[in-house]
């Protein structure tokens, strides 16, 4: 029977290098355009957006001075719950709380916020079954389990939550194919696998992972174009270059995929006119895919990009400064 694989074909002229100067310009200018309708439309993800942009800039040694960012984050902390919101006057959310803490760690400026407040907030979101809500409105999935332990680990306050119960919940989301989903028995998905394996790396419980079953499933994400998808029969996307590669790195199985064809796919996702990376060639570039394109290239050993930590998606020197050693498999 003929095989039809869902994939894309790459353009003829693929850039042969990472156009760093364009990407730096792209991120620095993002959102500063006069067309600020975009700015208003994205206020609900502002602090995470800052994390994507600033981490990307730091990875290519172009981090801007901290002042305005730290001041902004400070104002986004809700004094009563302790959580941090996406932007001023919004409600706090665990996604932005992690992003804020990551930015402050990069700048080495945790004093800017009420750390005890953040710890109190994370603790308040843990449920009886060990899972975490994203905010007080009760949405639950494994992304928030990752956010909770990543935040507390960066603050060196893991003792604040019931780690064993949190582990039990994540373990209950492991599927028969070795992957993980958002909730128990939800379909395996590379983004959620990163969250769960990252969670287990932080909590030192990689023993729960079926190492080679999962690594093989992740390798199956690579398509003939070289790109990686997030689930069977889906199109490749640069952000999965990060989620699949970081997990394979934690599993010590990065060498199982075809690195050259993946590098080629990532290079092809650069917008040579505007700068930045898009999800796939020809689409509109954004800071989210730009960070994950650069971070993936870092894992693949690009010499001009700083080493990135696969668990935290932060510069390795920051993780070293914090003396954190998230677990990874080594042969």
């Amino acid at each position: 029977m003929a095989t039809l694989i869902k994939d894309i074909s790459l353009q003829e002229a693929i850039p042969t290098r990472i156009i760093f100067e364009k990407h730096i310009e792209f991120i620095k200018e993002y959102g500063q355009k006069d067309n600020s309708y975009e700015y208003g439309m994205t206020d609900y993800l502002r602090v995470s957006g800052m994390y994507w942009g600033l981490t990307a800039l730091e990875l290519v040694n172009s981090l801007p001075p901290q002042f305005e960012f730290v001041e902004y984050i400070k104002k986004c902390q809700d004094p009563s719950s302790g959580g941090i919101s996406a932007c001023l006057k919004h409600d706090p959310h665990i996604l932005h709380t992690l992003s804020a803490v990551q930015i402050l760690c990069i700048y080495n400026y945790l004093d800017a916020i009420d750390v005890d407040g953040v710890v109190r907030y994370i603790k308040s979101l843990q449920q009886q079954d060990g899972s975490f809500m994203g905010d007080k409105w009760g949405e639950i999935d494994t992304r928030f389990s990752f956010c909770a332990v990543a935040t507390l680990s960066l603050l060196n306050r893991m003792d604040a939550i019931d780690v064993n119960k949190a582990v039990d919940f994540v373990a209950s989301c492991k599927n028969f194919d070795g992957g993980f989903g958002s909730r128990p028995l939800s379909e395996s998905h590379a983004g959620l696998i990163y969250c769960c394996v990252g969670f287990l790396s932080i909590t030192n419980r990689l023993d729960i992972v079926d190492r080679d079953t999962l690594a093989w499933w992740l390798c199956e994400r690579q398509l003939p174009s070289g790109g990686l998808n997030g689930r069977p029969e889906k199109l490749p996307d640069v952000c999965y270059s990060w989620w699949v590669l970081s997990t394979l790195t934690i599993l010590g199985r990065l060498h199982w995929i075809d690195q050259d064809s993946l590098k080629n796919f990532i290079l092809a996702c650069q917008d040579t006119e505007t700068g930045g990376f898009a999800d796939r060639p020809g689409d509109i570039a954004d800071p989210f895919h730009t960070l994950f394109g650069l971070a993936a290239m870092s894992l693949l050993g690009h010499e001009s990009i700083q080493k990135v930590n696969p668990t935290f998606c932060m510069p390795q020197h920051v993780i070293d400064r914090l003396q954190l050693k998230p677990q990874i498999f080594i042969d």
Partner: peptide, 22 residues
Amino acid sequence: KQDDADEPVVAIDYTEAFVDCF
């Protein structure tokens, strides 16, 4: 009005309906 004024990370000029509504 959106209170980003004192530290304008970005200048603001939304479409009219958007600004008005928010």
